[in-house]
């Protein structure tokens, strides 16, 4: 009787510990990536069904069906009609909560992206805007995984300021990011480089 109760309590403790260790962000990372593709398909279908319905983002003048996804190792990338940015075009990086815009600018420099970053929006041809989120390591992660690295996620978009069209979008999720926001910023810059004409 006692041994049965003991066994049950042991199983319950192990289960609760497992749930505590495994971060919810990591649990949902793969499913989120799949979901983003699915939601994009759903959006496509809804747009096709109701062409008169305005796009949720006012800046998106180009139909959503023109957005092409490219497979990447660490995030979701989408370009519109294979749009390209001319080299040394003037780019303004809009403020992002948490100062992530500084990490993007530093990433552009580290990855030698041939763009001119300006601090005045009126002088720019393109604008980079986005969101970022940082999740610090909890006690359970430190105890069971022995890692104190944070989880970083960010999503950016590039819009042409003259036409107002969004020409590029990229999302990154890094679990156990060794260099924190720097890694996420450099990942964004690396993928921006892909659409810059050299």
């Amino acid at each position: 009787m006692y041994s049965g109760k003991l066994l049950m309590s042991l199983v319950l403790t192990t289960l609760s510990l497992c749930i505590a260790i495994y971060p919810p962000a990591a649990r949902s990372a793969t499913s989120q990536e799949n979901n983003s593709n699915q939601s994009q398909n759903k959006e496509d279908q809804s747009q096709a069904a109701d062409p008169g319905k305005p796009a949720p983002d006012d800046q998106t003048k180009v139909p959503v069906s023109n957005i092409k996804s490219a497979p990447t190792d660490e995030g979701q990338l989408a370009t519109v009609n294979n749009a390209k940015i001319p080299s040394y075009a003037k780019v303004y990086v809009a403020p992002i909560p948490g100062g992530f815009e500084n990490y993007i600018i530093a990433g552009l420099r580290n990855k030698k992206v041939p763009l001119t970053v300006v601090i005045d929006r009126t002088k720019a041809d393109y604008e980079i805007s986005g969101v970022s989120d940082s999740e610090k390591a909890g006690w359970a992660k430190m105890l069971f995984i022995g890692s104190q690295n944070s989880n970083e996620q960010a999503s950016i978009k590039i819009s042409n300021l003259k036409t107002g069209a969004v020409i590029f979008g990229y999302s990154v999720h890094k679990t156990n990011s060794a260099r924190g926001k720097q890694s996420a910023g450099e990942a964004c810059a690396k993928h921006i480089k892909q659409i810059v004409l050299e």
């Binding site: 600018i105 552009l108 924190g180 720097q182």
Partner: peptide, 26 residues
């Protein structure tokens, strides 16, 4: 757990030319 009492510091800076409004270093 880790026996480490050091803080974790993260910083990023940008140097920009005020006249031309261009970022010269980051």
């Amino acid at each position: 757990i880790l026996g480490n009492w050091h803080s974790r510091e993260e910083a990023s800076i940008t140097v920009s030319n005020i006249k031309s409004a261009e970022v010269v270093w980051a």
